[in-house]
Design a protein around this nucleic acid. Structure first.
Lengths: 235, 235
DNA sequence: TAGTGGTCTAGACCACGGT
DNA sequence: CCGTGGTCTAGACCACTAG
């Protein structure tokens, strides 16, 4: 498995940013400078920088350069932050199923890419608690194709997204979502310790990542009576 | 103002897809074919196709081609787009109350700014239909302070946000939201023509605008059984 | 094996921003 | 003016898919 040149440059620069060698507002080396420093052509340098821009680490400014941006946290609804950073209280996580081989379930509401359907499906499922109250049932599917050793590893700081970023250098670059209000079926009601027929907020999300072979499909069932699902978005 | 070549190709292909000349599952011309047909190089052809992929009109398949994807339509969550631009179908709007003086109701779930509380409150309320099905009950409160003549004017293209933008040059710059799944109370059930006890998605939004004196508070009640509320966000 | 997309080279001209 | 990023050409080799 050989890494491409542009990914090498891309990861190098991303690492520099994450380590703080380039601060917010700083300018990265220009395309031409990267060409010299890494013995590549502009096409390759551009590709590396374009990827960084797509992941919103930098902002390209015509005539000026590539400036390190503040990374926006909110991604549509549930954020990149995910649950662990979103609730300021005492939260716990219980794995109902640790990451393992699964199947592309029909429970996934958003259309699954063909390329995903043709590859191995990994799955995990957990319940999130605030205090001792279960507030969210979370089911996640994704292609195992691009995540070697995923099954063996623990999550970094309990966060799936952090693990993707720090261990595999994969960033979330977008999401689409569908929201439904539903009545809890017996099974979900049991898991969330509510009565059957309690209204649940059902969130279907498909996350796109900087690795085009990795999409993450999630189905979330939330008890919203005490803790509504919130988010904010600012330009 | 000259259009770039890749944008020209990109728009041409997008038009073909939108007009149905390429159906879902069809393959677009290969990169090499585009090169010949439009007298361009592969770099340019690729750029056009990459843009289409980024907009999720197509899926790139190594060794096969560029396949037209399904783009699911659903009710756009009021991020900035608003309802009228989000749904591609036959939508109608019925005003239950045209914009008029109102009061800062306790139904508003998100905290109202003090400066708003101290100024005149305008209010309007409408029901959104897809076809003949009511799908959303929408209640809006905002300060009338900065919108002279607002009561007299019609909405531009039926859109509140467009009216703000084109007539008053005010843009939405942010929002916070809370989501709840609730059971329809008698009144809302009646308006939305569902049974009491049907689960409704209750969205509370507070929009901030480019005019710091204007905040918009909305309470939305959505029937999600047929048209889930959707949104997507890409960096 | 032929055709496809993915990566890369080595150039070129242009539009933009600041000096 | 120079350096920046944006577009584009004309090639090349590779990896993947399918017959």
């Amino acid at each position: 498995m050989k890494e491409t040149k542009y990914k090498e440059i891309h990861n190098h620069l991303k690492g520099q940013i994450q380590q703080g060698n380039y601060q917010i507002g700083d300018y990265l080396p220009s395309e031409n400078e990267l060409c010299v420093r890494f013995s590549i052509t502009r096409t390759t340098a551009r590709k590396a920088l374009d990827e960084l821009a797509k992941e919103s680490f930098i902002e390209r400014q015509h005539g000026k350069g590539s400036r390190v941006k503040e990374r926006r946290q909110s991604l549509g609804l549930l954020n990149v932050k995910g649950f662990s950073e979103a609730v300021g209280e005492d939260i716990k996580t219980l794995f109902l199923r640790k990451p393992a081989a699964g199947k592309w379930d029909s429970e996934i509401m958003l259309p699954v890419n063909d390329s995903d359907l043709n590859s191995i499906c990994l799955y995990f499922e957990r319940i999130r608690f605030v205090g001792n109250e279960p507030v969210m049932l979370e089911k996640n599917w994704f292609s195992g194709q691009v995540l070697p050793d995923f099954l063996c590893s623990e999550f970094i700081e309990g966060s799936f997204f952090k693990t993707l970023s720090k261990k595999y250098f994969i960033e979330i670059i977008g999401s689409s979502q569908e929201l439904r209000a539903e009545l809890a079926c017996g099974k979900n009601a049991g898991l969330l310790k509510v009565k059957t027929g309690t209204p649940l907020l059902h969130i279907s999300v498909k996350f796109s990542t900087s690795n085009s072979k990795l999409n993450i499909y999630s189905e979330l069932y939330c008890v919203t009576s005490v803790y509504p699902v919130g988010n904010s978005y600012f330009i």
